[in-house]
């Protein structure tokens, strides 16, 4: 009995140490953002600001157009989610429910395309976006990402788990394929669709490399690249930088606190089956 108690305590101890390590950077970011410049640059560092200040946030918003970046990020994420959502739902429906010649071959071909790293494609995609005259526009961060094989694959699997009889029943009730998709299949698949859109929003929000390549002017930056550009343009003032980082990270943290279970389960699913 005593040994059991000791084991339990050890488990909690290890978990707590690990958890603190994982969360510490976020904690440190937030604490630093609330300190004055003088307090940030002192040794030993203080675990809690002696003078609590929100000036760093105000300064960040004043020196760089973080409000604009934030809005851009929201717009880009929104259109990414809506457009990817539509193409994914339509394609997943065709692959799970419609009959057409060459379906299986086309699908396995698409799955094999998932192996291609996006980094490989930037060279030509950049040229394509330039040819379309979209360099330094928000569209440049939306248009290349309207179709996702991975999300289509996940949603098709979910659609396939919906019994055939519901489809036949709806058809007999007079519904066309289109009506069936939007009135029956999509409402039933709502949890799966929401999770996919959530993952999509997260990756859109955090995207760094591509937005860096296709945006030149301050007006069209999204948060991560805007944040990065902030240091090269205003010099390193860590208390301000940490305030800016907090602005970028906070929305995702809030999202994660509310949707943890579905995010985690879809990551687990996608990881092991994709």
């Amino acid at each position: 009995m005593k040994q059991l108690q000791f084991g339990k305590i050890l488990i909690y101890l290890l978990l707590i140490v690990g958890a603190i390590t994982m969360v510490f950077p976020f904690f440190w970011m937030f604490i630093s953002s609330l300190k004055t410049a003088a307090e940030v640059n002192t040794t030993p560092p203080t675990l809690w600001p002696s003078i609590l200040t929100f000036d760093n946030f105000i300064y960040a918003f004043e020196t760089a157009p973080f409000a604009r970046y934030f809005l851009n990020s929201v717009i880009v994420a929104f259109f990414n989610v809506v457009l990817t959502g539509i193409t994914t739902i339509l394609a997943a429906f065709a692959f799970s429910r419609l009959k057409f010649p060459g379906k299986e071959v086309l699908f396995s071909l698409l799955l094999s395309l998932m192996m291609i790293p996006f980094e490989m494609l930037i060279i030509t995609n950049y040229t394509t976006i330039a040819d379309l005259g979209l360099i330094d526009t928000l569209s440049a961060m939306i248009i290349p990402f309207t179709s996702s094989i991975f999300y289509t694959y996940i949603l098709r699997n979910f659609f396939q788990s919906i019994p055939d009889s519901l489809y036949h029943s709806a058809r007999i009730d007079g519904a066309s394929n289109w009506k069936y998709l939007w009135k029956i299949m999509v409402p039933i698949a709502k949890p799966a669709i929401i999770t996919i859109l959530l993952l999509n929003a997260i990756s859109s929000w955090n995207a760094f490399m591509w937005p860096m390549l296709v945006t030149n002017t301050t007006n069209n930056r999204t948060l991560p690249f805007g944040l990065y550009a902030f240091i090269s343009e205003s010099g390193v003032r860590y208390e301000v930088l940490m305030a800016a980082s907090t602005i970028v990270i906070l929305p995702m943290v809030i999202l994660f606190l509310f949707m943890r279970k579905s995010i985690v389960s879809s990551v687990a699913q996608g990881g092991t089956k994709g």
Partner: peptide, 28 residues
């Protein structure tokens, strides 16, 4: 615990990278 351990998955690598840059700072 899960929230603590999984949080870095959804946060911007760039933003967190800057936090690490600060934590790695030589002087402070």
């Amino acid at each position: 615990f899960q929230t603590a351990y999984f949080l870095p998955m959804v946060t911007s690598v760039t933003a967190v990278g800057l936090v690490w840059k600060w934590m790695y700072n030589f002087d402070y």
